[in-house]
Simulated assay, not measured.
Amino acid sequence: MTTNILPAQSRLFKPLKVGNMELKHRIVLPPLTRNRNDDDHIPLPFMAKYYGDRASVPGTLIISEATSVSHLEEGQYNIPGFVSDLQVEAWTKIIEAVHSKKSYYFQQIWGMVRASFPELMAKKGLRYRSSSAVAMKGRDTIPEAMTEDEIQEIIQSFVDTAKKVIGAGGDGVEIHSAHGYLLDQFLSDAVNLRTDGWGGSIQNRARLVLEVVKAVVDAIGADRVALRLSPYAAFQGAEKEDIEGQYLYIIKELKKMDTPLAYLSLVEATGDPGALVRGDKPVNQGKTLDFILEEWSKWSPVIVAGGYLPDTAAQALEDRYKDFDVLVAFGRYFLANPDLVFRIQKGLELNKYQRPTFYLNMSEEGYNDYPFSKEYLAAYPAAQAIKLGKNSYN
């Protein structure tokens, strides 16, 4: 039976403790790569406004865009790193902007390897790598299989970056093991063809993500660590033949730790970025995350992402996820609505997002020019709502 309930009256606005954070609601800004960093992978100053604006309702969880854990992983133009002093300094200002609104901040951290642009890696004089020497569809360049030393170095890079995030004031880190990026390339039996201790079996393919998680937990504490997984996504060719077997093994191993992670972030089948962003043929539609949630068994909260609208998110929390501590990620609509939480709670119309401006490198267009609602500005007259043009605000 489907529950008809207004979002404002639903579990979307039931507070929830997540790690050490006391969230006031369950609407989350998820990681959104938007290429607004400079050519040295340093966040541009106007990014502090973007993140701070979306933290404007106190008690909101803000998760950063995916951030490289070493200069070797800065493999696409204008994505960020959290490695150099200048990068850390810039991110510190962003974290402060979020905290100034009495909201919370997690940094998503990743490696890219074969998801990097081969020509950029060549330009930098860096090795183009992956779990195995398997080319990505549509590319002629074949990556080189990572060596044992490189694998150990990447584990340490995750640890070093996590420490820097906490040192900069962040509330925690979300480890990216989804959507065909580094850790997901080891999980995928379509990409990982290794025959050593890092490939072959389900256990060996999961080894790297589990070792990264455990190392980061040892460094900063489990309540400051989260993990993102995309069981059903075929993005960038990282498919798995035995989805349930692969991910149930990971979940069971995580639950052997003494302390639960802050949260688990899961992408539903409807959230495959290949279908949502590039128009690829959807895969695994109709399949659910139930097998993971049942095994996880409320060990810690779970964030779900799947192209939700306010009404469908409310229904999901009241029906499908009623027995679990679930939060909902809103990507495109949080981009287009800095006051999204307020709008949902008050039942206000949402700004429409403009897909052509999603990835305008180093530009504020389609980034800081989406308006706050008149109602929000009336309720919070001291909000940092600086007009950037005649159409900046309603």
Rank of each mutant, 00 (worst) to 15 (best):
V225M: 07
F82P: 00
D53F: 00
L266P: 04
S132E: 00
V18D: 14
D184P: 02
L309S: 15
Y105K: 09
L32T: 13
N78M: 05
Q384T: 15
I220M: 12
V304D: 14
I344C: 13
D323E: 14
F324I: 01
G52N: 02
K390D: 12
N284M: 05
N192M: 06
L293Y: 13
E244C: 00
Q9Y: 01
A238R: 06
V83N: 06
K287Y: 09
P80D: 04
P282C: 09
S177L: 01
R26K: 14
Y353V: 13
K123C: 01
K240N: 11
N284G: 08
I5G: 05
N204L: 07
L350E: 01
A275H: 13
W91I: 06
G199P: 10
L266D: 02
M1S: 12
L210D: 10
W91G: 05
H71D: 09
A383Y: 01
V173Q: 12
A238L: 09
S84H: 07
S157G: 01
T60H: 10
R139E: 12
A234M: 13
E144F: 03
A178S: 06
D218R: 10
I63R: 00
N4V: 15
L23N: 02
I5P: 11
M112T: 12
L229P: 10
L183G: 06
E239L: 10
Y333L: 12
Q236R: 15
S131R: 10
K390V: 03
V159T: 07
I250E: 10
E148G: 00
A135L: 08
R139T: 07
L182D: 03
P31S: 12
M362P: 00
N35W: 07
P31R: 07
A135C: 04
Y333A: 04
L309D: 15
D290C: 01
L335M: 09
F334C: 04
A135P: 04
K93N: 11
W198F: 14
A133Q: 02
R228H: 13
G286M: 04
M257P: 03
S297E: 08
S56K: 07
A269L: 10
L44M: 08
F46K: 05
S68W: 00
F46N: 04
W198D: 02
F117A: 08
P31H: 05
S100K: 15
Q345T: 00
S70K: 11
N337R: 02
L327Q: 08
E96C: 02
R205Y: 13
L44H: 03
Y359E: 12
I79A: 13
A90V: 08
I62C: 06
E365H: 11
V18H: 07
A379T: 04
E365Q: 15
Y232R: 12
Q9L: 11
G237M: 11
A115W: 03
L348N: 05
D272L: 04
L327E: 02
G199K: 10
R139V: 02
K14C: 13
I109C: 05
V277G: 03
G169K: 09
G167A: 12
P45N: 09
L32P: 11
R26D: 09
L377F: 02
F358H: 01
Y333R: 08
P356W: 01
G274S: 04
D325W: 05
K298L: 04
N394T: 14
P31D: 03
L293A: 09
N391H: 13
K281H: 08
F358N: 03
